[in-house]
């Protein structure tokens, strides 16, 4: 093997600093959330306690964060399932190069790059003028899909661009119907990438702020609740909340990544079932 050059160590140092830059602040508030009861928003630590975490469980101290958490979680699951299903269907559609596919594609890209506040404002205005009440599960749900679906679609493009068509041709040659080819050949092959789509769907919804702002109605999602707290809470309780939801995010991300990893392992262990007459 070649020897490492000097530039390797410089770049490695740069990378290390970048990672510190990414994670340093969040670790800091993780530490500060264990402030003593009389501690403030910055160092030094004024004792060590679980005081601020305990505060989170008292309604009057912080408002309805548990309700907000439940809503965000439910909404995240709804968006996740919808994103996976709709993205896969759209991914399959785009392979057919149907008439007008370019139009849908550019709409999806627009959806990704449009300033989020426009979605928020536009959806809010439509609901308002039609006399519907905005609610996180209707207008909020739709507004969030405009953010998660393009990501799902782009992942599906990446997946299908690398997809070996001969698997499908083989299935068809053996007499499989279009549905059987999809169900027993295509879907199992792309399954691990669907975990990725699901991860994007859930986490982007769970953390979404700008598109939900004017579309969630009177019941806040968690990010909206947290943002509300930034204007009137001046104690480390906000760090405790930040730490808790970040840990929750990490657990979710870990679970998804582990799932994808386990699926890959299983596939490597069992190998192909070609010729097994299944």
């Amino acid at each position: 093997m070649e020897r490492r050059t000097g530039s390797f160590y410089v770049l490695a140092l740069f990378f290390g600093l970048f990672v510190l830059f990414l994670y340093g602040p969040i670790l800091t508030i993780g530490l500060l959330s264990f402030q003593g009861p009389r501690g403030g928003l910055t160092f030094p630590m004024n004792g060590v306690s679980l005081h601020w975490f305990r505060d989170l469980f008292e309604e009057q101290a912080v408002g309805d964060i548990w309700g907000a958490f439940r809503r965000s979680f439910a909404l995240g699951l709804m968006v996740m399932v919808t994103t996976v299903v709709v993205s896969v269907m759209a991914g399959l559609a785009f392979r057919k190069r149907f008439w007008g596919s370019g139009l849908v594609f550019y709409a999806a890209i627009t959806s990704l790059v449009i300033p989020s506040i426009l979605i928020s404002l536009g959806v809010g205005l439509i609901f308002n003028q039609l006399g519907f009440r905005v609610h996180w599960a209707t207008s909020g749900f739709g507004a969030q899909l405009t953010w998660t679906l393009p990501f799902g679609l782009l992942i599906m493009f990446a997946v299908f661009n690398r997809f070996d068509k001969s698997f499908e041709e083989a299935a068809r040659d053996q007499g499989a119907t279009a549905w059987q080819t999809l169900r027993y050949v295509v879907l199992p092959i792309i399954a691990p990438s669907l975990i990725g789509v699901a991860l994007f769907g859930f986490t982007l919804s769970y953390d979404e702020f700008a598109r939900t702002l004017l579309t969630s109605g009177s019941y806040n999602t968690l990010p909206l609740e947290v943002f509300g707290m930034t204007t009137n809470v001046t104690t480390p309780v906000i760090y405790a909340l930040g730490t808790l939801t970040t840990v929750f995010s990490f657990v979710i991300i870990g679970a998804f990544l582990l799932g994808a990893w386990a699926m890959g392992k299983r596939r490597a262990r069992l190998g192909s079932d070609a010729g097994q007459g299944l």
């Binding site: 990414l22 994670y23 602040p25 969040i26 800091t28 508030i29 500060l32 928003l41 910055t42 160092f43 991860l199 994007f200 986490t203 982007l204 769970y206 953390d207 702020f209 990010p223 947290v226 943002f227 930034t230 906000i238 760090y239 930040g242 939801t245 970040t246 995010s249 990490f250 979710i252 991300i253």
Partner: peptide
Amino acid sequence: PFWTSNIIRMISWIP
């Protein structure tokens, strides 16, 4: 970090 909350990542700069 992309899959965690932007708001909280902003708050985390305060200290």
